[in-house]
Simulated assay, not measured.
Amino acid sequence: MRVKIVRIYDKSYATVKAWAEPFKDEAPAIPEAVLVKFIERLSMYKYELIKNNNSLCEYLYSNSKYWSLKVQISKNEIAFTAPRTKSFNSSLVFECLQTASELCDTHNLAIYFSKDRDWIN
C-alpha cells in the first residue's frame, strides 16, 4: 500500500482548507497550464513517466529504485507517494519536500505535508 507524503493543490483550495486536512475529491481542478508546466519541470528532476491515462499520470523517481517514490498527477491533486514501509525514510521525505517546494514556486499551488498534517507556505 502506498501513502501520500506530500500533496499539492490549487492555491484557492489551500485558503479554504487552511486548518484542515484536504480531500482530493472536493479540491478544485488545477489549471491546465499550471499542470503542464509542473510536468515539464518534473521531468528535469529525474522522474520518468510510467503511466498515462485520462485521469492519472504517474512518474517514478529514477535516481533511487529502492525508494519507489512516485508522483501521481490528477486534475485536482499532485501527490508524492511511497510504499508505507519506505515512507519514514528521512532522505525520501526530504526529496519529496524539496522537489515539491522547487516545483511549486509559482503562486498557483499549495503544498500539504501529510506527515505533519500541515500546509507549507
Score class of each variant (00 low, 15 high):
residue 62 S to F: 03
residue 29 A to T: 12
residue 108 N to C: 06
residue 2 R to W: 08
residue 88 F to E: 12
residue 40 E to G: 01
residue 8 I to D: 02
residue 86 K to P: 04
residue 70 K to D: 06
residue 54 N to H: 12
residue 31 P to I: 10
residue 30 I to T: 04
residue 12 S to D: 06
residue 56 L to E: 11
residue 12 S to A: 05
residue 108 N to A: 13
residue 47 Y to K: 01
residue 85 T to K: 15
residue 4 K to V: 11
residue 63 N to G: 09
residue 40 E to D: 06
residue 5 I to H: 09
residue 120 I to Y: 02
residue 2 R to A: 04
residue 79 A to V: 01
residue 50 I to V: 15
residue 16 V to H: 04
residue 68 S to E: 12
residue 25 D to Q: 13
residue 51 K to R: 08
residue 37 K to S: 10
residue 22 P to A: 05
residue 5 I to N: 13
residue 114 S to K: 13
residue 81 T to D: 02
residue 46 K to S: 09
residue 100 A to Y: 03
residue 58 E to P: 06
residue 31 P to L: 11
residue 116 D to L: 11
residue 91 S to F: 14
residue 116 D to H: 07
residue 37 K to E: 07
residue 18 A to D: 04
residue 60 L to D: 12
residue 23 F to D: 13
residue 101 S to R: 12
residue 35 L to F: 00
residue 91 S to G: 13
residue 109 L to T: 06
residue 91 S to N: 15
residue 18 A to K: 12
residue 96 C to A: 04
residue 104 C to K: 00
residue 57 C to M: 14
residue 79 A to M: 05
residue 86 K to A: 04
residue 58 E to T: 15
residue 3 V to E: 10
residue 72 Q to V: 06
residue 75 K to I: 14
residue 17 K to N: 08
residue 17 K to Q: 10
residue 58 E to V: 13
residue 5 I to D: 03
residue 73 I to S: 04
residue 93 V to N: 14
residue 84 R to N: 08
residue 28 P to M: 09
residue 100 A to I: 06
residue 6 V to L: 07
residue 82 A to P: 14
residue 36 V to K: 10
residue 3 V to Y: 01
residue 107 H to N: 09
residue 1 M to S: 05
residue 30 I to A: 01
residue 42 L to Q: 02
residue 7 R to Y: 12
residue 3 V to T: 09
residue 20 A to K: 13
residue 47 Y to M: 12
residue 22 P to V: 10
residue 46 K to H: 09
residue 42 L to G: 00
residue 82 A to I: 11
residue 50 I to P: 00
residue 94 F to E: 15
residue 60 L to W: 00
residue 53 N to I: 03
residue 26 E to Y: 07
residue 80 F to Y: 01
residue 67 W to V: 01
residue 8 I to W: 02
residue 3 V to Q: 04
residue 75 K to M: 13
residue 39 I to P: 02
residue 94 F to I: 13
residue 64 S to N: 14
residue 58 E to Y: 09
residue 52 N to P: 00
residue 6 V to D: 11
residue 22 P to Q: 05
residue 33 A to F: 00
residue 97 L to V: 00
residue 55 S to N: 02
residue 109 L to R: 03
residue 96 C to Q: 06
residue 72 Q to D: 12
residue 96 C to I: 09
residue 45 Y to L: 11
residue 117 R to H: 04
residue 113 F to Q: 07
residue 119 W to Q: 06
residue 120 I to L: 07
residue 31 P to K: 08
residue 87 S to E: 04
residue 43 S to F: 15
residue 87 S to K: 02
residue 19 W to S: 15
residue 63 N to V: 07
residue 86 K to L: 04
residue 79 A to F: 05
residue 93 V to D: 05
residue 21 E to R: 15
